[in-house]
Measured scan of single mutants.
Amino acid sequence: MEVKRLKVTELRSELQRRGLDSRGLKVDLAQRLQEALDAE
């Protein structure tokens, strides 16, 4: 999954699906999701 290409709504949805905080700026959301994906 290319996290950088996702829209903010898509980032928030993916973070919520993983039980992670979905608040913040797009750059923060993308970093949080990328870290979660790397840990999987």
Rank of each mutant, 00 (worst) to 15 (best):
S13M: 11
L11V: 05
Q16S: 12
R5N: 12
E2D: 15
A39C: 10
E35K: 14
E40C: 12
T9P: 10
V8T: 13
M1Y: 01
A30G: 05
V3Q: 06
D21Y: 08
A36M: 04
V8G: 05
E2I: 07
L37V: 11
G19P: 02
R12P: 01
L25A: 15
R5S: 13
Q16F: 07
D38N: 15
A36K: 05
Q16H: 09
D38Q: 07
R12Q: 13
R32S: 05
M1C: 04
L6D: 00
G24Q: 02
A39E: 12
G24L: 00
K4F: 09
L6G: 03
L29Y: 03
V8E: 15
R18D: 01
E10A: 05
T9K: 14
R12S: 06
L33A: 07
R17C: 06
A36N: 06
S13F: 12
S13K: 14
R32A: 04
E35L: 09
A30C: 13
E14T: 00
R32V: 01
K7Q: 14
Q16R: 10
D28L: 03
S13Y: 14
D28F: 00
K7F: 03
D38M: 09
K7L: 10
M1F: 09
D21F: 02
A39D: 09
R23G: 14
V27W: 05
R18S: 02
G24P: 02
L33M: 07
S22K: 06
K4L: 10
A39W: 07
R23F: 10
L6Y: 03
L33Q: 07
R5V: 05
K4W: 10
R23D: 15
R18F: 01
L6V: 04
G24M: 00
E35G: 11
R12H: 05
L11A: 03
V27Y: 04
A36R: 08
K4S: 14
L29N: 05
K26E: 14
A39I: 03
V3E: 06
L20P: 01
V3F: 05
L29C: 10
Q34I: 04
V27Q: 07
V8M: 12
S13Q: 15
L6E: 07
E40R: 05
V27H: 12
E40H: 02
G19S: 07
R18Y: 01
R5D: 15
E10S: 03
E35M: 13
R5G: 12
M1H: 00
L29V: 05
Q31S: 14
V3W: 04
L20T: 02
Q16K: 14
E10C: 03
Q34N: 10
E35S: 12
E2S: 07
V27G: 12
S13R: 14
R23N: 15
S22L: 09
L29K: 06
K26W: 09
A39Q: 13
K26L: 09
S22W: 12
A30Q: 14
E35N: 12
E2Y: 09
A36V: 10
G24K: 00
A30W: 07
R18N: 02
G19I: 00
D21P: 10
V27D: 13
R12D: 04
Q16L: 11
R18A: 01
L20Q: 05
L11Q: 03
L37E: 09
V8A: 11
E35T: 13
R17N: 01
V8N: 07
D38E: 12
V8Y: 14
R17Y: 03
D28M: 04
L11S: 03
L25C: 13
E35H: 11
L6S: 03
R12E: 09
T9M: 14
L20G: 03
G19A: 05
V27L: 11
Q31F: 08
R5I: 07
G19Q: 09
V27E: 13
R18P: 03
L6P: 03
V8H: 05
E35P: 05
R32M: 02
Q34V: 04
R32T: 04
Q16A: 12
L29E: 09
S13D: 15
V3I: 14
V3Y: 08
Q34E: 10
S13P: 04
A36L: 02
K26V: 09
V27I: 12
G19M: 01
L29P: 06
